[in-house]
Simulated scan of single mutants.
Amino acid sequence: VLFLCMGHGMSAQFLERHPVPASVRIIDLSHDFRLKSNAGDFVYGLPELNRERIRGAWHVANPGCFATAIELGLLPLAKSGLLPAHVSVFGITGATGAGQKPTEETHYSHRAQNLSVYKVFSHQHLAEIREILAGLDEDVQADIAFVPVRGCHARGIMVNAVFASERDLSEIRSMYAACYEGHPFTVMSDEPVYLKQVVNTNYCFVHVEQQDRNVLVTSVIDNLLKGASGQAVQNMNLMFGLEETAGLGLKASYF
């Protein structure tokens, strides 16, 4: 198996210059093969959505970190045909979630005791999020207003998705529980979730609450594990017929 962990745009160039034997499986962690328009035979590597396709895949495109957190927060709605026409999403990420190249905004002396928004309504992960969710519910165009925030912590993503629904909370929670039954790393929580529950693990914790018609779905992941290398290992396990959780029995920094 070959893991491609280079910057965005470099994986496709590498494969053009260096043909890989057909017997070698590939897992790419860049955005080069996530969209259908340039995916070729790459399968989108979100196990909670494509587990069986990943099992038979030779090439897998690992999802983005924000994409993973947002999709796992909204996937049950899309699968049930209940994704609202408009969803507002506010997400905050740690300093390690900003790619490989150091910048002033990723330097911890800038981020400590500080918050700032960036790429408002235009984050690069929106394309794959919209494509995945719209593919599950063709009647919805997946209008997602996403505001990403640079956090003052090192690692971890918290995403809050807000939308209106006429359905009651117990029905929504049951829908989420059914969607993630049998998936070892996505856990429904009856209590509000926080980053320390998932940092240093491959887990995604999801919590749903409601006030009147307003619904809030909160999802938390470690951007370096479930949002990157941990999910890549999870995909490798599926591709090679190993136990899905192999090598990923990691404890949270708070337990």
Results as ranks from 00 to 15, higher is better:
136 L>S: 00
253 S>A: 15
128 E>Y: 06
249 G>L: 11
152 C>Q: 11
120 V>M: 11
241 G>H: 00
230 G>K: 03
179 C>D: 07
92 I>D: 02
171 E>R: 15
95 A>G: 05
97 G>M: 07
212 D>R: 13
159 V>S: 11
165 S>M: 12
144 I>D: 00
223 N>I: 10
221 I>A: 06
10 M>C: 09
174 S>V: 02
62 N>Y: 01
82 L>Y: 05
51 R>E: 01
109 S>C: 05
149 V>G: 02
250 L>W: 14
191 E>K: 05
124 Q>K: 12
154 A>K: 13
154 A>N: 12
97 G>W: 06
57 A>Y: 02
151 G>L: 13
176 Y>V: 01
74 L>M: 09
213 R>L: 15
164 A>T: 14
171 E>Y: 07
98 A>W: 10
148 P>S: 08
164 A>C: 10
138 E>H: 13
38 N>F: 09
48 E>V: 08
108 Y>V: 10
252 A>D: 14
93 T>I: 13
200 N>H: 15
75 L>P: 00
150 R>Y: 12
1 V>I: 14
236 M>D: 00
89 V>K: 08
32 D>G: 06
100 Q>K: 14
9 G>W: 07
174 S>E: 14
229 S>M: 14
60 V>Y: 05
119 K>C: 10
233 V>E: 01
91 G>H: 00
131 E>V: 02
76 P>F: 08
